[in-house]
Design a protein around this nucleic acid. Structure first.
Lengths: 168, 168
DNA sequence: GATATAATGTTACATTATAACATAACATAT
DNA sequence: ATATGTTATGTTATAATGTAACATTATATC
């Protein structure tokens, strides 16, 4: 909870390029080895689907994609895999729209801020010392012991702002 | 969005006492008059139920309670009333657990931080200049135009921390 | 009162998520 | 190597949350 990713304050953690997908999967493999957990075929498939999506995806979309890959799957299939990946910090869940996205920094546990474009759905995971620390400070004042902070910001991304201006 | 409630940084906005419920309802009445909107019986009933709850409540719980009051109601009945109350800033929705709670400060539009106890469900709405401003600052760096920030913190409230210590 | 608008009633359904129990895969000790 | 316990997955059914679509009623305005 207390550690932060080494990113600069102004660089965002964008969704992984298809080259980076392999890196993320490799990281997942070694991370599970370290923790003595099984990175099964199902879990790998689900993580890969989440990584390859260019936007946060819903559980039932993942379910469809698993089936397209010829796998016999039902809702629990997906949710159980997602639960595992969430617990291991390999994916995040966005509560405001019930979607899942790959974590950009599975190496280090961290709390992140998500910028969710209401127009196009593109979502950035941004890491900043500031936000989470301020949240914790405030919580402390109320003697509240934080276990998880969900910070999701809805609005318009840069490119959708331009489009709207152009349209006027 | 830019205005903040006049609270001190360390005072929380606790759930309304049953005396305060009347005040909140009166505020809703005058607020709707000002805006030329209808504060109908249904909307009043739903707001009152949300106010009287000692914890954030789910939509279907509200539905049950409406029916207990003898009102013919279906899911859209509740959701439409909630949508109205949300738009007017009279209630908040917690995305992390799909519940609704009365806004402590309907007079002034504001963005709030919610401290949600995972043990007992008690939820505090706390207002702090800090958190929301930092969020906005960060968003600006990415040229992201914020319309709404959802900041929900899960953890243990003071009283549940004590209980756990006592149990050990 | 006639007409337009807003709110509610009602039915049906979509979406998201979990419970419960059976089976299969894997790990470990004997 | 096999018996045994544990973990993961398959499968069916259902719970919980939320919305679409259209009919009806109430309200406001002319």
């Amino acid at each position: 909870m207390t550690e932060h990713c080494p990113h600069s304050e102004t660089a965002s953690c964008t969704l992984p390029s298809s080259e980076q997908v392999k890196v993320l999967l490799d990281q997942a493999v070694s991370l599970c080895e370290q923790r003595n957990l099984r990175f099964t075929e199902l879990r790998k498939q689900v993580l890969e689907l989440v990584c390859r999506a260019d936007q946060p995806v819903g559980a039932y979309q993942l379910l469809d994609e698993l089936r397209e890959q010829g796998r016999s799957a039902a809702p629990p299939t997906v949710y159980r895999a997602l639960d595992f990946l969430l617990e291991q910090g390999l994916v995040h869940r966005l509560a405001t729209n019930n979607t899942y996205l790959a974590c950009a920094h599975p190496q280090k546990p961290h709390a992140a801020v998500f910028l969710v474009c209401s127009q196009c759905g593109q979502t950035q995971e941004v890491h900043t010392r500031g936000v989470i620390e301020v949240v914790k400070q405030q919580a402390e004042k109320f003697d509240f012991r934080v276990t998880h902070a969900s910070v999701e910001v809805a609005g318009l991304c840069h490119s959708c702002q331009s489009q709207k201006e152009g349209a006027q």
